[in-house]
Design a protein around this nucleic acid. Sequence first.
DNA 1: ATAATATTTGGCTAAAATAGCAAATGTTAT
DNA 2: ATAACATTTGCTATTTTAGCCAAATATTAT
Lengths: 104, 104
Amino acid sequence: MNVKRTDEKIIRKQVEIFKALAHPTRLQMVQMLSEGELCVCVFQEAFGIDFSTVSRHLSVLRNAGIVSDEKRGKNVFYCLVRPCVLEMCACLENDGHCRCGNAE
Amino acid sequence: MNVKRTDEKIIRKQVEIFKALAHPTRLQMVQMLSEGELCVCVFQEAFGIDFSTVSRHLSVLRNAGIVSDEKRGKNVFYCLVRPCVLEMCACLENDGHCRCGNAE
DNA sequence: ATAATATTTGGCTAAAATAGCAAATGTTAT
DNA sequence: ATAACATTTGCTATTTTAGCCAAATATTAT
């Protein structure tokens, strides 16, 4: 069998990104960032969870290269640096099923 | 603060899909299915892991609605029913970063 | 320099995900 | 009916992830 196999390095990077998105809080965070940068404290208020937890979630997103952070004064602002994740979510909302009949 | 929040039900579904993709073996499986349906045994050979493990991975993908299965004779064939996941992967390969300056 | 505010990091525990083995199921061949 | 083959399911050990508290760090205000 000669099936397509993607380079392992690429797969690992993609997995890291999907893993980062695979949590309700983090996915909401990404959605919230669609309209512009936000300060850590905004997420804390929005979710009502511990600051440390918010910070950890944001660092997962940052390590995956989905968001970047910038310190200004006392605050740290996060913003989306890989907007295509929003398109991915949109695509999934469309529930875009399509039966396959491409093989045999 | 009045930030965008996505409906929780939608978020949960999206999380399930991202979670399903967030594993190197499963992501490779999806890639391999890009060219058409494949039988469980093909995956088993390709990865050299236990049949039970292959089967479990496939069921994660099926439960998330990414693939569907069809039994024919002794074999079970899986195929992609949500091809947009391939576009998502392609998008991530392009490493499409873009600094934001959209807020203030 | 000290205090107050905002965020991150270390340590910990509970919960979820992974992978293999063995047993169960379903299908075809004898 | 029995055997052989392909796949799934039950169980268990191991690893990873999540979330809280407390402590550390950095910045601004006093």
